[in-house]
Each structure stands twice: as structure tokens, then as C-alpha cells.
Amino acid sequence: MTGNFIASSSIDIDADAERVWTVLTDPSAIKDFMFGTEASTDWTIGGPITWRGTWEGKDYEDKGVILEFEPGKRLVNTHFSPLSGQDDIPENYHTLTWTLEPQDGKTRLTLTQDKNGSPEEAKHAEGMWDSLVKSVKQIAERG
């Protein structure tokens, strides 16, 4: 890892924080908003989380650890993807931070990813996360 550039994506959702939280933590919703991935975790702090799927014709199994779990407020987990081509060592794990901020019956969802190696890498990640948070918005607003 050559840098610590932060990728960040935020969106306002016309749903309360409880509804948005449900979307973020429900395996079927995760599959919808996270590009078809199958997520597996028990949501305990220190516990593992895995994401399995196929991306551009390649099977993958990403992994991480749940670092924080505050229902309706904040979820923090590490993330490593072998598809990155990097070695599976701690310094190559990103930290994903999902923050929910209630705003008069609505919710601002912000997703950040640390340890991007360059401004270009951060910008690429932001593009992916922008698409993902828009999908979370669509699912949450469907009810």
C-alpha cells in the first residue's frame, strides 16, 4: 500500500435510520446492492465477514472483520479482495465505515474506504461506492 487516500460517498435517503440499517445488514438486500455478492457474518465485533460472488467472470471470496456494530448508527469492517492482486497482509486491508445520520425522518448514509494507494484509486473506489449507496437508497425507499 503506497498511500492512505480516502474514498467517500454520501447520499440522502427518504427512510429512517432503522430502515436503512436493516438494508445494510440483511443478506438478501446486501446481494441486491452489492453486485450480487453472498455475504456471511454473525455481525459480532471481532467476527469474520465474507463476500462471495463472481465479478467480470471471476469467482471471488473477499473477507474482513467486523470492527464496530452500532445498530442504526455505524458499521465498520475491514475488507480484503484477492482480486486486487495484492498480498493478503493486514496493510492491504481497507476499512469500510458506514455512517447513518438521521435527519427529520430521513437518513444521510456515508460510506468511506481508507488505504487507497493514490488519488486515482480513491476516485475509482468512489465511483463504485456511489453506485452502491444509490442502490441502498432505492431498496430502503421501496419499503
Rank of each mutant, 00 (worst) to 15 (best):
residue 83 L to F: 02
residue 73 K to A: 14
residue 48 P to K: 13
residue 81 S to M: 02
residue 89 I to C: 03
residue 88 D to P: 03
residue 37 T to L: 09
residue 57 G to C: 06
residue 83 L to E: 00
residue 54 T to P: 00
residue 65 V to L: 11
residue 36 G to F: 12
residue 46 G to W: 05
residue 60 Y to I: 08
residue 89 I to D: 04
residue 39 A to W: 03
residue 100 L to I: 06
residue 60 Y to W: 12
residue 53 G to D: 02
residue 74 R to P: 06
residue 59 D to E: 14
residue 37 T to K: 05
residue 43 W to Y: 13
residue 77 N to M: 13
residue 77 N to K: 12
residue 90 P to N: 02
residue 64 G to M: 04
residue 70 E to N: 14
residue 91 E to P: 04
residue 84 S to E: 00
residue 100 L to T: 03
residue 44 T to Q: 13
residue 42 D to C: 09
residue 91 E to L: 12
residue 72 G to M: 11
residue 87 D to P: 00
residue 88 D to V: 03
residue 66 I to K: 06
residue 97 T to P: 01
residue 88 D to I: 05
residue 87 D to W: 00
residue 91 E to H: 09
residue 52 R to T: 13
residue 50 T to D: 07
residue 68 E to R: 14
residue 68 E to I: 07
residue 61 E to S: 12
residue 42 D to G: 11
residue 62 D to M: 09
residue 99 T to L: 13
residue 40 S to E: 09
residue 57 G to S: 07
residue 86 Q to E: 04
residue 55 W to L: 13
residue 86 Q to A: 08
residue 44 T to L: 06
residue 46 G to Q: 10
residue 82 P to G: 10
residue 58 K to R: 13
residue 78 T to F: 01
residue 44 T to F: 06
residue 45 I to H: 08
residue 81 S to R: 01
residue 89 I to N: 07
residue 79 H to Q: 13
residue 61 E to P: 10
residue 66 I to D: 03
residue 62 D to L: 09
residue 99 T to C: 04
residue 40 S to C: 06
residue 66 I to F: 10
residue 80 F to H: 02
residue 88 D to Q: 07
residue 79 H to F: 15
residue 83 L to H: 02
residue 71 P to K: 09
residue 96 L to Q: 02
residue 74 R to Q: 11
residue 101 E to D: 11
residue 101 E to K: 15
residue 71 P to W: 07
residue 62 D to Y: 06
residue 37 T to G: 11
residue 51 W to G: 08
residue 58 K to P: 01
residue 45 I to E: 14
residue 97 T to G: 03
residue 38 E to F: 05
residue 73 K to Y: 06
residue 67 L to T: 08
residue 60 Y to K: 08
residue 45 I to F: 07
residue 61 E to T: 15
residue 78 T to Y: 01
residue 76 V to L: 12
residue 71 P to M: 10
residue 78 T to D: 01
residue 96 L to I: 10
residue 36 G to V: 14
residue 78 T to N: 01
residue 97 T to C: 06
